[in-house]
Structures are given as C-alpha cells and as structure tokens.
Design a protein around this nucleic acid. Structure first.
Lengths: 184, 184
DNA sequence: GTTCACATGTAACAGGTTACATGATTGG
DNA sequence: CCAATCATGTAACCTGTTACATGTGAAC
C-alpha cells in the first residue's frame, strides 16, 4: 500500500494535516503496520488535491504556525471505498534482527545477549504503548488492529524470553555443554 | 537491510547462485522476514564481485543451463562479520490486511469475512511450510528464526480466529445486536 | 537561551520492482 | 506440445528516504 492510499484512508476517517498523518503512522496507533515520512506524505497530499480527491483549508490560529487541513471529497471517498474491494497483498515483514540471530554463530555471546535483551525491552515498551492506545481509542477497527499488533508483539517477546539461552549458546565463543532445545 | 548485505550473508553460509538466493528469500526458509527480486539480486552479486567480496565460478552441467555459483571471499567474510556488530534496525511490518480491517465499517460483512478467512488459510499454509522447513534444516540459527516466525504466525492466526466475529459485526451492513468484545 | 513540539516543503538520491528478453530441459 | 522449473540479465520506472531549508511559540 502506497502513501497515497494511506493518506486517503486516514482522511476517510477524519480530516488531518500532513503532520498529523505522519505522527499517526510513525508514533501513533498505526505505527506497528504502517510507515511514512514527510517526504512522501506532503507530495502525496498535494497530488490528491490536484486530482480532486481531497480539499485543503488553511487554518491560521493565533499564536500557532499555519496548518493545512485536508479533508476527503465525495470522489475521494468513492475511490477509497472501491479500493477496499481489492484483495490485500501479503503482509511484509523485514527483520534485520532475525537475520542477525540467524548468523549467531558468527557473533559472540555478549553481542547476541544484548541484541535479544534490547529487543525484548523494545517489545515491552511497544506493548505498553499499544495498550494505552487501545484504552484511549473508541474506534472498533483501530482496536482490532491494535489488538492484533499486541498479540504479535507478545508472541515475539515470549518466544525471545523462552529461547534466549538457545541463541546465546549458539555464539562462536561459547562452550556451552548442551544448548537447550528450542521451545515452540 | 539491503539486498547486497543479504546476498553476502547467505553466501557466508554456503555458495549459491542468484536463482537460489531468490528462492531462499521468497519461497524458502527465510521468506517470512526477507524479500528480494531478481532485479535487485543479480546486480548486487555483480557489484559484490567487482568489489572482491565474492568470487564467481561458472558451472556447465550436461543437460542443464549454465549457472554462476558465487562464493564469499575472506574480505567478504570479514566485512560481513563486522557488519553484524551494528545494532539491527527495528523490524518493519507493512500490512495491507490490517489497514483493510481498520476500515471494516466501510465494507460489507461478506467482504471482511472472506478477507479474514483467506488470511487464516494463508497463515495455516505458511505455518505448515515452516514446520517442514524446521524439520528439514539442521542449522540452529535458521531453526530459531523459523520458530520465531511460526510463533508470530500462530499468534496472528489465533487472534483472527478468536476475534473474527468482532470484525465482521463491524461491517457497514450488519445489524448485529451486540458485537462481542475483543478477546486479547 | 535553548530545546522541544508544531508545521510545511523540496531536491537529490537510493533502492528496489516490473516487465521484458532469452533459452534449455523435464514431465505430463 | 505445453507448462513448469531452472537460469541470467537489463532498462525503465516508481516509490520513498534523507537531508536540507525555514519558521513559530511554549516550556524549562
């Protein structure tokens, strides 16, 4: 899914500025399955405007920088809803972390330990964030998506906690007698 | 992680052709966290060769098309192992599926039902594939990565199975009395 | 006074995908 | 004979990232 569709989809829920769309997809409640930068959002918004799928309104509040609030048009809404009828492509996961673990035999134990513990800590933080998002958010679809993310992150964290020792035992400088077996 | 590093990493385990690297990362045991196409693999391999990080050998077996088998050099090995010392970037998940579910209130129940059931079926197939990969594969690192993938996919499948009704009840044309609550 | 959050935008660049072009062998 | 699998490669294109450029007001 490209940034254009992402913007259209978010504007289909509520009007927003480019800045808000970015926050939502990088720090906000969609951040576990969406990513976008200013450099792609702003041009996308301009293009959607040119195509008549969204409208802009400039808001100038006293004591605040000017903001461009985008809202979806009927044409935009129609195009977006139509796009929902196409089957979604497969999820794409890119994990440098897993690739690192894959190569554990070329690293030393300390390095792997750090990598895994950092990851567990990161997952814990993300899970906590998502729990807050879910409590803050009334929207059923968002709650479903957040719950899905939480379930995956918890599974990842639990797997890492359970099998941490196996990965560490696989390091190049360990003489661990018998690495425990993977717990699945 | 770019395709260049991916190729180097795979060649660090064993020599391979471009074709094999692609199979491994698209259909093989790394496919759940890696993706690469011919259009990026072949140029990357050529470049690695130019840089002296890998060597090529052309194999001409009777009755089979010529193949270029790449193997890592000592320089390549050193560079790759050094690159493992950098902290891995965060995992990136892009999910058109979750975005679709997020928008369930703009779709009809039938559409959501199909999307979820298709996804559950796909996850089941992937999980089965990964179980086979794990049994076929002796390499500890790979087993760890496959186990991680399996854990995530199972969590996703279970979440979808458990909360399927919630998403469907959220469709635009349902008059479900009370959507069951999300089970977390 | 400096850092943070808000706010928009562009240009160069990197990276990768898609489609095309080619061709042998095997199995149904 | 046709489809699938093995096998390599290029060129046009698309998409998105990074870094830069600019500015305000609030809080500390």
């Amino acid at each position: 899914m490209n940034v254009r569709t992402l913007c259209l989809g978010i504007l289909n829920f509520e009007e927003a500025t480019g800045y808000e769309i970015k926050k939502l997809s990088v720090e906000g409640r969609f951040s576990h399955f969406i990513d976008a930068s200013f450099g792609s959002i702003y041009p996308a918004l301009t293009r959607l405007c040119d195509e008549g799928l969204v409208n802009v309104r400039v808001e100038q509040k006293d004591g605040k920088p000017a903001r461009k609030v985008y809202s979806i048009t009927e044409t935009g809404r129609a195009e977006f809803v139509a796009s929902l009828n196409k089957a979604p492509g497969p999820d794409k996961i890119k994990s440098e972390f897993l690739f690192l673990i894959l190569c554990s035999e070329f690293m030393d134990a300390e390095r792997i330990k750090t990598a895994i513990d950092d990851r567990i800590a990161w997952l814990d933080r993300e899970i906590e964030k998502m729990n807050e998002f879910r409590l803050d958010c009334e929207h059923t679809g968002s709650q479903f998506a957040i719950g899905y993310g939480t379930a995956l992150y918890e599974a990842a964290r639990d797997y890492l906690k359970t099998n941490r020792a196996v990965a560490i035992a696989n390091a190049n400088n360990t003489q661990m007698p018998d690495a425990a077996e993977l717990t699945l």
